[in-house]
């Protein structure tokens, strides 16, 4: 019932954040080479960090908005596919690591089932709107900023057992 001490929740620093909104669908395939087009697809940085997440129809999250992703987005805009919206402050990033991570999240959702057949998913965790993707050894979770305090408290209660 309580997660082992190795499971921990880390609040990451929230920096520049972009969402790309496409002008509707069908998208007709990846309009730019390297674009994560399938539902739930994620494009990763060379070091493995998630760079661009397709978490909703016609919507992508660029959590760090690094140079190469910005270039990709600029190309997509150039191709007339959609617009980029600066959403700095909208999502609070977290990382959940360790052996109890699945158990902690299972208290609110079977994350494995939500991620079946996809790399990222838009979900509701402890009543908080969230986007989740796997990391080695755990999960990267973005929580809608106004809910972040509630999310942290909910996870904290379970980690304390």
């Amino acid at each position: 019932m309580s997660a082992p001490a190795t499971c921990r929740l880390e609040r990451r620093s929230a920096g520049p954040l972009l969402e790309f909104a496409a002008f509707g669908f069908p998208l007709g395939g990846a309009f730019v080479v390297g674009w994560p087009a399938a539902p739930g697809a994620v494009r990763h940085e060379p070091d493995g960090r998630p760079a661009l997440l397709h978490f909703a129809p016609a919507r992508w999250l660029a959590p760090a908005a690094e140079a190469d992703v910005r270039a990709l987005i600029a190309a997509a805009i150039e191709a007339g596919a959609g617009v980029a919206v600066d959403v700095e402050g909208k999502w609070q990033p977290f990382e959940l690591h360790g052996d109890g991570a699945d158990r902690v999240l299972a208290a609110t959702l079977d994350v494995g089932a939500a991620l079946e057949g996809r790399e990222c998913a838009a979900v509701t965790l402890f009543d908080c709107p969230a986007v989740v993707t796997r990391l080695p050894g755990g999960y990267a979770i973005w929580i809608r900023a106004s809910y972040a305090q509630h999310f942290e408290a909910s996870v904290g209660r379970l980690l304390r057992g």
Binding site: G24, F25, P26, L27, G28, G29, A30, A37, A38, P39, P57, A58
Partner: peptide, 8 residues
């Protein structure tokens, strides 16, 4: 999806 859209 409403509007007949299919996610690519």
């Amino acid at each position: 999806l409403v509007g007949g859209g299919e996610p690519a």
